[in-house]
């Protein structure tokens, strides 16, 4: 067993490093709660250990050890459920909810990150055992770099759409109570005082999809809800319990596919709003690519 000490330690270390690198704490990489960190680091340790001991087990011809991997898969599905449950519980009292799509997206990310950890520690221990420590360090460096730069990052809205400012207004076609952004009806605001406040402080942007794939993505209500949640979290909203007038809302222009977004932010400043929309993640579950199919291509023009 002495010979395997180094192999296991290298595998374990690389696995843990991978988990820590992928444990971002910015707003959309939930947890961001101290106890969330503890849970994820512990499970990351389990994943790293699984990857690290696989090589010694196989070398010793203990093939049954592979069944542990099946157990691991089961375990990590559990993580997904755990994240989903936590977020769904929080969702109930959220003023601007994340939406089911974003919750699923976050949960899935946390499950898959544990598989990445297994892969990282497995390659580290394989190389340590068969090629030596220097090779393992080199290869682990490359793998970790790829993980943190590509795999742990999804697309953001900036890549699929242009975001331009568009002042909300009342009085489209003589309807003085309909709140509009561009040509999209946002909502009906009955009270004079509420209309006045919205005119003074409300902000709007128009999200213009770059192609038909992007249009299909923005068509998903879950994606729009994720945008609203991100924006409200980053720049703040005046929405309050029992005051539906100040709700941020995103609606589609049915003719062009553009999405008009209205929000009553804490500070009426348009630049942070545009930035916040720009960095909203494009959700896996909302991402659709009709242009890659024949009917989609035909429908394009």
């Amino acid at each position: 067993m002495e010979d395997y000490g180094l192999t296991i330690i290298v595998g374990l270390t690389v696995g843990m490093l991978a988990r820590l690198l992928m444990l971002r704490s910015d707003y959309r990489h939930f947890p961001g709660y101290p106890h969330g960190y503890v849970t994820h680091i512990s499970l990351g340790f389990v994943a790293a250990a699984l990857g690290a001991v696989a090589v010694p087990a196989l070398v010793e011809k203990e093939y049954t050890a592979v069944t542990f991997l099946a157990l691991a898969a089961q375990q990590f599905r559990e993580i997904r459920n755990m994240e989903r449950e936590t977020l769904n519980h929080l969702e109930e009292i959220e003023l601007v909810p994340r939406g089911k799509d974003l919750v699923e997206g976050i949960a899935r990310v946390f499950e898959s990150r544990n598989y990445l950890v297994i892969a990282a520690s497995l390659q580290a221990s394989v190389l340590t055992y068969f090629a030596g420590l220097p090779w393992a360090v080199l290869s682990s460096g490359i793998v970790l770099w790829i993980f943190s730069n590509y795999l742990a990052k999804g697309k953001v809205l900036r890549e699929i759409a242009d975001v331009v400012p568009s002042q909300p207004y009342f009085g489209f076609a003589g309807y003085k109570t309909l709140l509009m952004v561009d040509e999209v009806v946002i909502m009906e605001v009955g009270l004079e005082s509420a209309r006045k406040k919205i005119m003074e402080e409300g902000l709007g942007v128009l999200i213009k999809p770059k192609d038909d794939n992007a249009r299909a993505t923005l068509h998903q209500v879950g994606q729009r809800q994720a945008i609203l949640h991100t924006v409200s979290n980053l720049i703040g909203t005046k929405k309050e319990v029992g005051e539906p007038e100040w709700s941020p809302i995103a609606r589609k222009n049915i003719d062009t596919g553009e999405v008009a977004l209205f929000i009553l932010p804490n500070e009426p400043d348009i630049r942070p709003l545009i930035q916040a929309v720009n960095i909203t993640p494009v959700l896996e579950s909302s991402r659709t690519t009709p242009l890659e199919s024949k009917p989609g291509k035909l429908a394009q023009d």
Binding site: Y175, K176, T177, V189, G190, A194, V241, G242, P244, E245
Partner: peptide, 15 residues
């Protein structure tokens, strides 16, 4: 407005 506040609801104007 008062009704809206009491009922936690939205006021609409049918014009």
């Amino acid at each position: 407005m008062i009704l809206g506040k009491i009922l936690n609801a939205m006021v609409h104007n049918l014009e």
